[in-house]
Write a protein that binds this DNA or RNA. Structure first.
Length: 597
DNA sequence: GAGTTTGAAACT
DNA sequence: CAGTTTCAAACTC
């Protein structure tokens, strides 16, 4: 590798020139795609081809600095728009946010924690016009870098443009984020340090051979994501359940880079558990990939760490993501690298039936509120009218009644939109058919919406296509004059929301508790594990499930209770927000979602 | 800080 | 498309 390079001189560097030159050449006919191609990284993973994304020249105003979320990790949808010598954008880089490459060092640089400026490349031969250059790859101009002969700047816009085109020609997605993020993507550096980021996936996948995908050489690892079926790495250890990986992340050492690195090295060389690593010394060195074919399962202790197969092999387990993956790690085959999902701490706490129950409770509350208020109001009106004309009083009442009814319908209509918030509980759309509430009873839109949800939940399975457009939200009904009830609705909503809030608070509390439990458990387990390793104790992992870490998806398996309890919680919460949390039962649990071996 | 290793990008 | 070379970052000493 580094040999002939002579990294120094510029003997051969046809390429750099090629870039420009080539570009020129190609540009000869570039008419079509002028440089004006816009980068539309927006779609993030989704849109892959379509418009070619091309780092547009520095249009100052153009930079799409994405969402200044406070999160350190730019979730961007960046745009390789060459941002002119840009002042380091605080936390969000305009581009290729996820490019593993660009990410890590840039700003945060854990080293001293000092927020660092963007990032500075050190290119010498590429003139910063190739993807080798992080700046270029990120779509930004070099600014304050240590590069030599840099052309990635305003002064050389022309060359740069050509280079961009050339690059795009080779790979239209060159400037797109490499990591397909997900809603659960990385969120903050802390999580990054730990492990959590799991859902994201490298679009192209890595091709690591020696790093075990546990070093920053690996784009996946660098991006803090697990290797996926897109990867073609060999001897991958960056998958869920990987002890090596866990060793890297867990433990109080999470913050200690040195420790992490050490752990990584150990893992790579086989020092850390894992199958038969021990047997074959540094097997590595030689292993040219082929050696590791899994022959496996076998018992051949001498078999070289088969632990991991080339990704290609673990091409995913048919098994759905993670969940019950029993981790017999040997079979990564069955496990697949990654593909597991992050589970919310509340995952086990909230059950479908709980939602149902919650909805029911809220509906009841709403009904009662409505009834009370309505009665009150009616009474008042009646009284007023009574004095004037007794006979009319009755009519009024009827009228009111019918009014309510019509309002009810209307409610369903206009509220669905607003009431969507209520959906939060159940992501599904609200309503199912026939939802309209009990006739004759005044119900606020919110209530109706709740009921819709309830039904949804209850009859989810029976869902019919109609549902989506179903009457529920549909604008089919009209509202004559809903005036009368508006106050009632308001009051009703207020009450319901208050109750609901109480419930949410309860859940939050629960979540926090669980989190605490999980983390402490994870910590202790990690410590124990470490200790074991340190003692030279036989590898825990040697076999099958035993190794199952206490953690799965970041959720430790504890004696948490989930299930059933929730109902009580929910109900209690709704009924009396101030209620104390029921004590978590010590139910067996499936919390970690990983079966215990 | 120099030298080595690594894997992506570029090239053939 | 596979193999090789080039490159710059990551890593080690």
């Amino acid at each position: 590798m580094g040999e002939g390079d002579g990294a120094d001189s510029a003997p051969k560097k046809p390429q750099s020139d090629a870039v420009t030159a080539g570009a020129t050449t190609s540009s000869g006919d570039v008419p079509a795609k002028k440089l004006a191609r816009q980068l539309d990284f927006t779609g993030f993973g989704a849109t892959t081809s379509g418009s070619v994304a091309l780092p547009e020249p520095p249009k100052p105003q153009l930079q799409t600095v994405t969402v200044p979320q406070s999160q350190p990790k730019p979730q961007v949808v960046g745009v390789p728009v060459p941002v002119p010598p840009q002042p380091p954008v605080p936390s969000v880089r305009p581009v290729k946010p996820d490019s593993p490459k660009s990410r890590p060092r840039p700003n945060v640089d854990g080293k001293d924690g000092t927020p660092k400026k963007q990032k500075q490349c050190n290119c010498k031969h590429s003139r910063c016009l190739k993807l080798y250059c992080e700046c270029f790859a990120s779509g930004i101009y070099c600014d304050g870098c240590n590069c030599v002969n840099c052309c990635n700047n305003v002064e050389n816009e022309g060359a740069r443009r050509d280079a961009v085109e050339a690059t795009l020609e080779r790979n239209p997605n060159a400037f797109r984020p490499k990591i397909a993020s997900s809603p659960h993507g990385p969120r903050d550096s802390r999580e990054e340090a730990g492990e959590l980021v799991v859902l994201a996936k490298h679009n192209k996948g890595c091709h690591c051979k020696k790093s075990g995908c546990l070093k920053k050489y690996c784009e996946c690892f660098q991006a803090n994501i697990l290797c996926s079926e897109n990867c073609k790495c060999i001897d991958c250890k960056n998958f869920e359940g990987s002890e090596e990986r866990q060793a890297l992340f867990h433990g109080d050492h999470s913050n200690n880079m040195a420790y992490l690195q050490q752990a990584a090295n150990a893992a790579i060389t086989g020092a850390i558990g894992s199958s038969g690593y021990i047997s074959s010394p540094p097997v590595s060195k030689k292993r040219k990939g082929q050696e590791l074919f899994f022959g496996q399962t076998g018992k051949d202790p001498s078999a070289h760490r088969i632990g991991q197969f080339p990704q290609a092999n673990h091409l995913r387990p048919p098994a759905p993501s993670s969940s019950s993956v029993p981790v017999a790690r040997l079979g990564t085959a069955g496990l697949g690298p990654s593909k597991f999902t992050y589970r919310s701490l509340l995952a086990d706490i909230i059950q479908p039936q709980d939602l149902k129950e919650l909805c029911s409770v809220l509906v009841v509350v709403a009904e009662e509120a409505a009834k009370t208020l309505a009665d009150r109001k009616n009474a008042a009106e009646k009284q007023a009218e009574y004095q004037t004309e007794a006979s009319l009083a009755t009519t009024t009442e009827d009228r009111l009644q019918s009014q309510k009814e019509s309002d009810t319908q209307k409610a369903v209509t206009d509220d669905c939109s607003t009431a969507n918030q209520a959906d939060k509980i159940s992501p599904e759309d609200s309503n199912s058919d026939g939802v309209d509430g009990p006739k004759g009873r005044p119900m606020s839109p919110g209530t109706l919406a709740l009921m819709c949800d309830e039904q949804d939940t209850m009859f989810m399975s029976a869902a019919s296509p109609n549902r989506l457009m179903g009457d529920g939200c549909n604008t089919s009904s009209q509202l004559p004059n809903g005036q009368g009830m508006s106050e009632v609705y308001a009051e009703q909503e207020r009450i319901v929301l208050a109750k609901f809030r109480g419930c949410l608070n309860m859940l939050i509390t629960r979540g926090e508790l669980k989190e605490a439990e999980c983390s402490s458990l994870a910590r202790s387990e990690a410590a124990a594990q470490r200790e074991q390793v340190g003692n030279g104790t036989p590898n825990p992992r040697t076999e099958t499930g035993s190794q199952q870490g206490p953690i799965s998806n970041g959720v430790a398996k504890t004696a948490v209770p989930p299930t059933a309890r929730t109902s009580q919680i929910v109900t209690a919460a709704v009924l009396s927000p101030s209620t104390v949390l029921p004590k978590p039962p010590s139910v067996p649990e499936n919390g970690g979602n990983k079966p215990k071996a």
